[in-house]
Computed example of a mutant assay.
Amino acid sequence: MSENNYGALMLKSALDTSVDLTIITVPGIYPVTSGNSSAPDSSAGLLVVSLTPSGSRTIFLKESSSVLYSLVSGKWIKPTASDVNAVAKIGDTMTGGLTLVESDIVLKTSSSDSPQYTIINTTTGASVNMDLIDRRFRIFGVPWGGGPVKQFAFNLETGEFSIPQASIRFGSGIIQADANIYGTAWGENGNSGWINMWITNRINDAKTWVNQNFVTGMKRGAQSSMVMDGGLVEAPAGCVLTGGNGNESNQVGIALYRPLQVWRNGGWVTIGD
Rank of each mutant, 00 (worst) to 15 (best):
M10N: 11
L15T: 05
L15G: 07
D20A: 08
I23K: 14
I24T: 08
P27G: 12
G35S: 02
S37N: 06
S37H: 02
P40D: 10
D41V: 12
V48M: 15
T52W: 12
T52F: 13
P53F: 14
T58G: 06
L61F: 15
K62M: 11
S65K: 10
S66A: 08
L68Q: 13
K75Y: 03
T80Y: 06
A81E: 01
S82I: 08
K89H: 04
I90N: 03
T95Y: 05
G96F: 01
G97E: 03
L98Q: 07
S103E: 08
D104Q: 09
V106R: 03
T109Q: 15
S110P: 03
S110H: 10
S114V: 13
N121Y: 12
T123F: 13
S127H: 10
M130K: 06
D131I: 01
R135Y: 08
R138E: 13
I139A: 12
G141S: 09
N155H: 07
N155A: 03
T158R: 06
G159F: 01
G159I: 02
F161V: 15
Q165E: 13
S167W: 02
R169P: 01
R169G: 02
F170A: 10
S172G: 12
G173E: 14
D178M: 00
A179P: 01
N180Y: 00
I181F: 00
G183Y: 03
E188W: 00
N189I: 00
N196R: 07
R202V: 07
R202F: 11
A206I: 13
K207T: 13
F214T: 14
G217Y: 10
R220P: 02
Q223P: 07
E234D: 05
A235W: 00
P236G: 02
A237Q: 09
G244I: 09
L256G: 06
R264V: 15
V269K: 08
G272Y: 01
